[in-house]
Amino acid sequence: MNSKTADRLATGVFILIATIIVAILAGLFFYIFINGFKNISLEFLTSPSSNVRAGGGIRDQLFNSVYILFITMLITVPLGIGGGIYMAEYARPGKVTDLIRTCIEVLSSLPSIVIGMFGLLVFVNTTGWGYTIFGGALALTIFNLPTMVRTTEDAIRAVPRDLKEASLALGITHWHTIKTVILPSAFPSILTGAILAAGRVFGEAAALLFTAGLSTPRLDYTNWNPFSEQSPLNIFRPAETLAVHIWSVNTQGLIPDVEEVSSGAAAVLVISVLIFNLAARWIGSMIHKRVTASK
């Protein structure tokens, strides 16, 4: 075979590979949405799930997912931004910084099931809380923290050095400079990163199986007292999320309409993740436009 033919053949193979990758995504989306939309209705979204009968909805699971995500971000965002500020502004090259980098690397490469096991050991058994939203959120925090720290660090490092110097040269302290000059400039990138991370957290299940549990108590949505057993806002109650629900109905559920419930739930999950992605992109491009327009 001469080199020209080989070149043409190789080009063909690469195009084929690209086509395969696109086809995989297209196939997945096609399946998720075609099957999903058939099963999504207002009733599906607003009625409670059933353990045995057909026709259950995903109301509680959807609420739990959003609520756990909210609690997780409430813990992760400040911690992650703090860690990111430390890494970008205070960390001096040396052993301690290397140690923290290693820790971030370790945390980010831990399988989520392992994080779930740690959560079970500490937030469920050692504390004696049992399966709780709070325990789940803490496990997800471990899962999410490295991303948040990296995002913040990168965003801060991308802030022009002149701005920081300008502020310091005016006799403003480092910390006040971080608060008033660096963080505002880094905010759009941090926000984009946080939204993307939120999408990942929303779809996570393995870390929640043994921390937030596989069940939800009967919830009374009119009860807003966060200390009440039946209140959806109680963070010390077990909560099955949407992603966990898909897994549990498929592997240990008794309901006859597994296929329908899971396709509906999967579609809702994927749409939510898509919304997170689009929101992040949209905010990113908005900011980009604003920055370039002001010049």
Partner: peptide, 12 residues
């Protein structure tokens, strides 16, 4: 987008 699809959806 492939990254964004949750693993339970892949499993399902």
């Amino acid at each position: 987008l492939l990254v964004g699809i949750p693993s339970v959806v892949y499993g399902f």
